[in-house]
Design a protein around this nucleic acid. Sequence first.
RNA 1: GCAUCGAUGGUCUAGAGGUAUGACUUUGGCCUUCCAAGCCAAUAGCUCGGGUUCGAAUCCCGAUCGGUGCACCA
Length: 572
Amino acid sequence: MSDVFDNVMDLAKRRGFVWPTTECYGSVAGFIDYGPLGTLVKRRIEDLWRQFYVISEGYYEIECPTIGQEAMYIASGHVKGFSDKMCQCPACNEYLRADHVAEAHNIPNAATLSCEALAEKICTLPCPACNEVLGTVEVFTFNLMFQTTIGPGSQRKGYLRPETAQGIFVDFGRLLRFYRDKLPFGTVQIGRSYRNEISPRQGMIRLREFTQAEAEIFVHPDMKDHPNFSRYADYAFPLLSSEQQLRGLEAKTYTMKEAVAAGVIANEYVAYYLALTHELLVTIGVMPSRLRFRQHLPDERAHYAEDCWDAEIFSERFGWVETVGIADRTDYDLKAHAEQSGDSFTAYIQFDEPRREKRRVINANMGVLGPKYRGKAKAISDALQEVTPGPDGATVIVDGEEIFVPADLYEVKEEEVDVRGVDVRPHVIEPSYGIDRMIYAVLEHSYFEEEVEGEIRKVMRFPSRIAPVQVAIFPLMARDGLDIMAKEIARTLQLQGILAEYDDSGAIGRRYRRQDEIGTPFAVTVDYDSLEDQTVTLRDRDSMKQVRIPKDQLADLIPALIRGKSSFSSLI
RNA sequence: GCAUCGAUGGUCUAGAGGUAUGACUUUGGCCUUCCAAGCCAAUAGCUCGGGUUCGAAUCCCGAUCGGUGCACCA
């Protein structure tokens, strides 16, 4: 049975969009090559993404290493949480999630048990695949991160990053200073991430090496109103909220303003990026009718996330595919890195007006305290600041030891101070895009077959900003100077940064069809009239209509058409 | 990973033990004044590794990749 997926992937391979990697040695599941045209499409989509996030939003892009040291991924939770406890059934060789087996038989918190403890618990249970009692099995952890070593001698563990986000989080301090100590600010990264999927399938939908475009937007935890919310306040599209899902209902269309007011979306920031994502996906060629935003159900959401939505794109083959995740991750990540690293990961936010606050200060009498407690004196003095002293003295805990400090060894003062600001740990709003999935969706949604005079015409209806080849230049015949004029036109456009492809091989109709199949939006043909009156025909891919225009207008017209500043229909 | 089905030029395909058929595409030539026209020629293939056999695309075993179901999918 051949469906759109087969047709699209066949075209993708033949025409150089995407193909399996290292075919001569046998491909490896989960890895793909982008061919010449696919690489162009990918770059164009990434650049459009930058247009939205870097240029429009002002969230500058950074690049971090794809290999990260262990500490970073201990903090992020990937070393622990990104691994599954697995075992292999001795009877049928099936790999099983050991914690799932246990939980299915009402053993609580199975995921938190050690491997040995878990092995003990499940030895009496039946294998869910073959029903044989598992008996003595070894439970092992399978971590989805690719592991490597840094430097010779294997001293330091390194991991290939499973997401680009952590690189941004750990740079928080420097980024904050770059943005001159003000919230909110955002930083983005586009790059490869790696996950050693147990069984990747579905073509380019689940890859072991894939490209993510992530934005991390650091906002004040109490100020989740987006400064430019009005831009999308009236932007409307269907939302499949968790409540609708739980009640078994369909998606409902809201404006962003309504959705925030009704509490469907947690805050303006999340709503703003849902809308921006909708606009971006439609701009790159995703059909609005096959795009929906689904809210994570309470049990599906990461425990720290305040709200989380997926942009899902409908594929004829795969159904609804999660392509973009938009989450309010709260301060989870920054807090985790603060605890692991000892750095503060906070921003000092000044108040508009200094606030006069009463503060109690405890001044230790170091002249007495020092000789009495010796090495511990400094720690005791610090600890005193944190406790409420009793009438006779204060009890502090230093290195686990309880020490009673008599009241005559310190002086308690109430003083009024100007408090000019406060350290806050920002919350993170994270839109995270799977670029490869977006590209697949665009390929599938752009693919059309139509009958033209008894022949099937295959055409990729890419938006012109995404199309790999932007214009094709043909001489009607490759002689009589037509070819020379066509090459000159191609050259002129190329010097403007337009990818113009010259082609003089075969009948003109065949050349049009070739360009249709790779989605080239426009074709310019030089004919015998061109030599007389310096006009050429401009042909539109989608309507196949032609219009005659002066050759000298091409240099302005073609870029305008490709950037959507002008439309072909306005020329007719 | 388990089960199952499949894999022949770039694409589709014939081929059931004797060195691979045809079409499309591509390239070159002829022809051709706007949507895959025609003619001539050329390029190009049995997924990989073992085994059986004088001889394997074909039979057997294994691997790889792909489809489907299950499992997995922070």
